[in-house]
């Protein structure tokens, strides 16, 4: 699954202000709501579900990356947001490192394979140090979009 199929361009934030896990998730869920990816009246329920999922184990997957996510009955299609933190945020990651790059995913209830395909695409690209670094250094939404497009065209990662 390509980035263009699930990342909403209007839900990309290059300089998030949040300094803790809850704050990051709130800011990203808000960007998803404002971009029309999730319904306004489902915001609280989705936010709480993502936090609850984090309580089962951090989605900080190492190398400064986190993929907070949840399934939710109110979405019909998998949607995602991207955020970058300049100073990094403590996220209880397995490697205990701060997180700089965030991909938040909300997926429909009964489509585990879609969720897996999105995670697969994100992590395949992020295994490439250049992609990670370029993304972290992005200053504008357009730069992020250009990088995601390049990744979709197999310029990074393991290709597919």
């Amino acid at each position: 699954m390509k980035f263009k199929e699930f990342i909403l361009p209007d839900a990309i934030r290059v300089e998030i202000k949040a300094t803790d896990k809850q704050g990051v998730i709130r800011e990203m869920a808000e960007s998803l709501r404002d971009a029309g990816g999730i319904k306004k009246d489902e915001f609280d329920s989705i936010f709480k579900a993502i936090i609850k999922r984090e309580e089962l184990g951090s989605t900080g997957i190492g190398r400064g990356i986190a993929v907070p996510h949840t399934k939710h009955e109110s979405v019909e299609k998998l949607v995602g947001a991207v955020a970058i933190s300049r100073d990094g945020v403590g996220f209880d990651s397995l490697d205990r490192e701060k997180v700089y790059l965030f991909f938040l995913i909300v997926s429909p209830q009964h489509q585990p394979s879609e969720h897996l395909r999105a995670l697969e695409h994100i992590t395949r690209q992020l295994k490439d140090d250049r992609f990670c670094r370029f993304l972290k250094d992005s200053k504008t939404r357009d730069e992020v979009l250009a990088l995601l497009k390049e990744a979709d065209e197999d310029m990074y990662g393991m290709g597919k």
Binding site: I61, G62, R63, I65, V67, L94, P112, S113, L116, R117, L119, E120, H121, I122, T123, R124, L126, K127, G157, M158
Partner: peptide, 13 residues
């Protein structure tokens, strides 16, 4: 020992 590696397999049921 790498979550990024494991997730990038995209191993489905």
């Amino acid at each position: 020992d790498s979550m990024i590696d494991l997730l990038s397999l995209g191993a489905a049921q």
